[in-house]
Design a protein around this nucleic acid. Structure first.
Lengths: 234, 234
DNA sequence: ACTTAAAGCGAACATCGTTCTTCGAAGGAA
DNA sequence: TTCCTTCGAAGAACGATGTTCGCTTTAAGT
């Protein structure tokens, strides 16, 4: 019986984990589940990976590989920053609740560094003061990750409920809306009156709104930049 | 033997949990730990609390009780919004890593609602379009919670290391800085050149910078507001 | 061919959240 | 007072988790 040895390796473990994450979510991504998928036991994984945290960091950076980075065009620096943020949002959203891993971990993997390098280059080319650019990388990453993470919690709840996405969201937000409407008007007059404005706007809309605020704020601190920001919609 | 019965109740459990959270962190806050502190077993808690998630939601709202809310002054709406955000940041930071609970949970507790009501009232008084105000409450809450959460991860790591806070932070960021400096210059030229600008600025400074961006961005979308934002520092 | 270093892997440990089940005491009704 | 109902207290256990220990098996080096 010449069963092939050394079938296990780091890349295979990472790829398998990423597949499980996408299909079943972060809660289902246990060491045992990964091992099971590879036809072995959990102990076998520890020869290739320090611990679970390292494995998570690895699959996070692996997911970031899909984020595209452009060559800096000084005239379009704000638009480029915006495009990169939207692309990162798209990629992270596509990998379900991976954003939880990125929250609070500054980028040390090759792809995280690649993205940070591109952001820094774009901002410096655009004339953003280096000190601002340094903090901006941090703030942008935090905003993107936290927003995707928030969305992922809804998806996780939907997965647990077993319902179909559309009907689940409808029911979920319907309940929230009903809750807000049932609040005592004397204590929360403004909130109750504005329920509609609290509830409309879906995920991507909210993300773009906040991103636009941040970029407008940055532009207002950079000399020569259009204070109206990259978009003028609304 | 008139041993007092019914020593357990919701408020006592919440208060005890909040004390453990502050002293030992979120990781140490298990149902068993809370029960032990109350001299009983974990099963006893379930008579007063649905499950752990509900308990966490309760202590989160309890912590929010410390956030002060002002009467709206239409002329100072941006400053008031800023003051509330800083106050919430202060309160959440004081309760260690409680911010993780608030991430992704829209406010349904009495204190969360009280804060949202005040924010909405301030913005409407200041002339912010209701649709913007609705999203702003969401975006501000997300920004505050995610930033405090990021900080709490550092504190958690420091707690596990057993070291004193100052020396831990110094060592931690020293390692990160060293790592960045050791990167290959040909692949990450801009990043390596700007290490100093990536690392300076401590927690509160970063938070205020991002908050300022968001508020400037909002001001630029509201007619009649000062496009330079609430502060002009930097 | 023999040695050695390391991967594979079953079993176990210490946790965790939660549930089942039993016990006991408070409070109302007769 | 005495009985009965109700519900909180709590021990034990279930199924999971991340991780470690120790043994076996294999591949590579000399």
């Amino acid at each position: 019986m010449n069963a092939p040895r050394a079938v296990l390796n780091r890349d295979l473990i990472v790829a398998t984990s990423l597949r499980i994450l996408g299909a079943e979510g972060l809660d289902a991504l246990s060491m045992r589940r990964v091992a099971q998928e590879l036809g072995t036991g959990p102990a076998s994984l520890y020869a290739h990976v320090e611990n679970k945290k390292e494995l998570l960091d690895l699959i996070y950076d692996e997911a970031l590989a899909e984020v595209r980075v452009p060559e800096p065009e000084p005239e379009r620096w704000l638009e480029q920053l915006r495009e990169m943020a939207l692309d990162a949002f798209r990629v992270l959203s596509a990998h379900a609740d991976i954003a939880k891993i990125g929250l609070g971990n500054l980028p040390t993997g090759p792809n995280g560094l690649r993205i940070a390098e591109a952001q820094m280059a774009i901002m410096l080319a655009g004339g953003v003061p280096p000190k601002f650019a340094g903090i901006m990388i941090d703030r942008l990453g935090l905003y993107i990750c936290s927003d995707v993470y928030e969305d992922s919690l809804h998806l996780s709840r939907q997965r647990d409920s077993g319902k179909e996405l559309g009907s689940f969201m409808e029911e979920f937000f319907g309940q929230i809306e009903g809750f807000y409407r049932s609040l005592p008007v004397d204590r929360f007059p403004t909130l109750v009156a504005q329920v509609d404005n609290l509830m409309d706007a879906d995920g991507i809309e909210r993300f773009e709104f906040g991103l636009d605020l941040i970029l407008r704020g940055l532009a207002s601190r950079v000399e020569g930049a259009d204070p109206a920001g990259p978009t003028t919609k609304g």
